[in-house]
Deep mutational scan, measured.
Amino acid sequence: SAVVMEEGSPGEVPVLVEPPGLEDVEAALGMDRRTDAYSRSSSVSSQEEKSLHAEELVGRGIPIERVVSSEGGRPSVDLSFQPSQPLSKSSSSPELQTLQDILGDPGDKADVGRLSPEVKARSQSGTLDGESAAWSASGEDSRGQPEGPLPSSSPRSPSGLRPRGYTISDSAPSRRGKRVERDALKSRATASNAEKVPGINPSFVFLQLYHSPFFGDESNKPILLPNESQSFERSVQLLDQIPSYDTHKIAVLYVGEGQSNSELAILSNEHGSYRYTEFLTGLGRLIELKDCQPDKVYLGGLDVCGEDGQFTYCWHDDIMQAVFHIATLMPTKDVDKHRCDKKRHLGNDFVSIVYNDSGEDFKLGTIKGQFNFVHVIVTPLDYECNLVSLQCRKDMEGLVDTSVAKIVSDRNLPFVARQMALHANMASQVHHSRSNPTDIYPSKWIARLRHIKRLRQRICEEAAYSNPSLPLVHPPSHSKAPAQTPAEPTPGYEVGQRKRLISSVEDFTEFV
Rank of each mutant, 00 (worst) to 15 (best):
V376H: 00
Y355Q: 00
Q241C: 09
T379G: 01
L302M: 11
N348S: 15
Y493I: 11
I377S: 03
H345S: 07
P222W: 06
H432Q: 09
P475D: 15
R418A: 13
F324R: 01
H248N: 05
R450G: 10
T485Y: 10
E288K: 11
G301M: 06
F362E: 00
E510H: 09
V495P: 14
G272P: 03
T490V: 13
P222Q: 09
E462R: 07
G282E: 04
S273C: 03
G256I: 00
Q457V: 05
G256F: 01
S219V: 12
T277L: 09
G359Y: 05
I250W: 00
P442D: 09
S435V: 09
L346F: 07
W315Y: 11
I407L: 08
G272Q: 02
S433I: 07
K342I: 05
L299Q: 15
I459S: 06
H325I: 05
A483N: 09
Q484E: 14
A327I: 03
F415I: 05
E270R: 05
P486W: 10
H432F: 15
P482N: 14
T366A: 06
Y383W: 06
D295C: 05
R454D: 15
G369K: 05
S358A: 05
H248Y: 12
I377C: 06
R339E: 11
L455C: 08
R344Q: 12
K333L: 14
I446L: 06
A405R: 11
L289F: 08
E462M: 06
E384Q: 15
M420G: 01
Q457P: 12
Y276I: 00
E270L: 04
D361H: 07
T281M: 10
M330C: 07
D318H: 09
T366R: 03
E278I: 04
A481T: 13
A463N: 13
Q429N: 08
K499N: 13
V236C: 11
W445M: 08
D246P: 04
L329K: 06
K296V: 06
D382G: 04
K337C: 12
P442S: 06
A464Q: 07
C340A: 15
Y493F: 13
T332L: 12
S235G: 12
F362S: 01
D341Y: 14
S479D: 14
C392N: 02
L253T: 02
V304T: 15
N436H: 09
K363T: 11
S268V: 02
P468S: 11
V351E: 00
Q310V: 10
H271P: 03
H345M: 13
Y441D: 14
Y465D: 13
R500H: 14
A265H: 04
K290Q: 10
S262P: 03
K343P: 05
G306Y: 06
V376Q: 00
R344E: 12
F311D: 05
D401R: 03
D317H: 02
Y383D: 07
I250P: 01
I287N: 08
D349W: 03
A322M: 10
F311L: 04
P414T: 03
L470H: 15
P222T: 09
S466C: 14
L422R: 01
P294M: 13
F362D: 01
I459L: 12
T328R: 03
T485I: 11
S466K: 09
A481Y: 09
T509K: 10
L286P: 12
T281H: 14
W315V: 03
L302Q: 15
G365M: 05
A251T: 08
H338G: 15
E257D: 07
A322W: 09
H432Y: 15
K296H: 06
L329P: 04
T247F: 12
N227H: 14
T312D: 05
T402S: 09
Q497E: 14
P491T: 10
L390G: 02
Y276S: 00
K363R: 10
R454C: 13
E228Q: 09
A424D: 01
V505R: 15
S229E: 12
Q391K: 09
V495Q: 14
V430K: 01
I502P: 14
V323G: 03
P294Y: 12
M396H: 03
I287C: 13
F508E: 15
I367H: 03
S219H: 12
E278A: 08
E218M: 10
N467C: 14
E270P: 04
S503Y: 05
V374C: 09
C392W: 04
K394N: 10
N227Q: 12
N467W: 12
I353K: 00
A417Y: 00
E488P: 10
H431R: 11
A483K: 08
D246V: 06
L501N: 15
N269E: 03
H478C: 13
L289R: 15
Y465Q: 10
L238R: 15
Q497V: 11
Y245V: 09
E270T: 10
P437W: 05
S235Y: 15
S504F: 07
Y355D: 00
S273G: 04
L472Q: 15
D308P: 09
S231T: 09
S235N: 13
Q237Y: 10
V304K: 13
